[in-house]
Amino acid sequence: MSSPTSRTPLIDMIKGMACATIVWHHLAFYGPMSDIAHPLAPTLMAWLYDYGRMAVQVFLVLGGYLAAASLAPQGVARFDHAGNAIAKRFVRLVVPYAVALLLSVVVSALVRHWMEHPSVPEQPTLSQLVANALLLQDIVGEDALSAGVWYVAIDFQLFALTVLLLAGVKALPGAWARRHAAALAQVLVVAGTAASLWVFNRMGALDMWALYFFGAYGLGMLAYWAVRAPHGHQAQGWLAAMVLLGGAALAMDFRGRIAVAVVTALCLVAAMRSERVRSWTGIAPLVQLGQMSYSVFLVHFSVCLLVNAVVSQLWPDSPVLNALGMLLAFALSLAAGRLLYLRVERHVPSWATALRWQAGLVGTGLLVAVSNNWA
């Protein structure tokens, strides 16, 4: 459903770089390898620990950009039924997600006997498994089964919120509403972006809801409409709106994450309005990583947890070998992500497939928990 300008090698390269940054952030954040290797590169480790998570803002902006491309490239909803659009998104997200969480449950059960560390998830409960399967873990107060899965839930919420907003505008009665549907939908997106940046994103207690993150997502949508604007003055209008929204938000309350989102959105417009940049084939490894970034994002925690357990058992005091272990964990995360991408994510799933994997996640998690209790 994406338009020709919505997905280019540049988009995939940006996703690839952001994905690699997130993996390294988690390698630095979740020890013990990073704790032992820290003296070798303390400045780099500190940067990854403190700022690597900012790459999430890049994904949020790109998510909004691609959502606008697929849902409303001209501002008007191009889908016929909101429920079907949301259901398709849920199914596409949760099948590789369930596979990755199932792996996390199994790996956590294995390493729990080798390594005592805060990064190892506790034995899952039934309520925790069900909440994670339904993307509700943060809302109902259950722990996540893997690092970063909160983002999957937020991505789904943001997509669903956008679909409902666009569908609501499309359903308005009257000739005037139909004639001005595109402008009305875009005004509402701008208003929602402003509300998020200026109000909701300043309220930390809301960080399990889409409203908290809609500012970055909305900037991505505005960026897409700026790229698609047929005339230069229209593109300049969108850019001015983005600068005003972001600048006011930073003036009210400077947040590094919002600064990253604003810069990402503005740079995206500048790059994607250039025919030369859009036609660039990119750097092949980064393009490939971007294409499979969702699978790598899902599976890397389990891989890193397993490598951490092995290295901490064999070489608990060697900074060099632990640093090499981090490099190995990164490489294996890419390999595992590629396997998940080729075998699962790339295939269009059905509701039956999604339900089967969700049930498998819950059932396997309970089986593992019972087995551990017996052991």
Rank of each mutant, 00 (worst) to 15 (best):
S3A: 04
T5C: 02
L10G: 04
I11W: 02
C19I: 08
A20G: 08
V23P: 00
W24E: 00
Y30C: 06
Y30D: 09
A41E: 07
P42G: 03
P42D: 03
L44I: 12
D50F: 09
D50V: 14
Y51K: 13
Q57L: 02
L60M: 14
P73N: 14
Q74E: 10
R78F: 00
R78C: 09
F79C: 09
A82L: 14
A87D: 15
K88V: 11
R89L: 06
V91T: 12
R92I: 05
L93T: 11
Y97F: 15
S104L: 02
V106E: 01
S108K: 11
S108A: 15
W114M: 07
E116Q: 14
S119M: 06
P121V: 10
P121T: 13
Q123E: 02
T125A: 07
V130R: 08
V130Q: 05
N132G: 06
L134G: 10
L135H: 01
L135S: 01
G141E: 06
E142Y: 03
V149A: 03
W150L: 07
A153C: 00
F159S: 09
A160Y: 10
L165W: 00
L165D: 03
L165N: 01
A167V: 07
G168F: 02
P173V: 02
A194R: 07
W198D: 03
F200L: 15
A205V: 10
A205L: 09
W209E: 04
A210W: 14
L211Q: 05
F213D: 11
G215W: 13
A216S: 12
A223G: 08
A226Q: 15
R228G: 05
H231G: 03
H233G: 03
Q234F: 11
W238C: 07
A241W: 11
L244C: 15
L245G: 11
G246A: 04
G246M: 01
G247I: 06
G247Y: 07
M252P: 04
D253M: 06
F254A: 15
V262F: 08
A271R: 05
M272P: 04
E275Q: 10
V277R: 00
W280C: 09
T281Y: 01
Q288S: 15
L298N: 08
V299W: 02
V299F: 04
S302R: 05
L306R: 04
V310I: 13
S312I: 06
W315K: 02
P316T: 02
V320G: 01
S333W: 11
L334R: 06
L334T: 00
L340Q: 11
R343S: 14
V344Q: 03
E345R: 00
H347A: 12
S350D: 10
T364C: 13
T364S: 04
G365I: 05
N372L: 09
N372P: 00
N373L: 09
W374L: 15
A375H: 13
A375S: 10
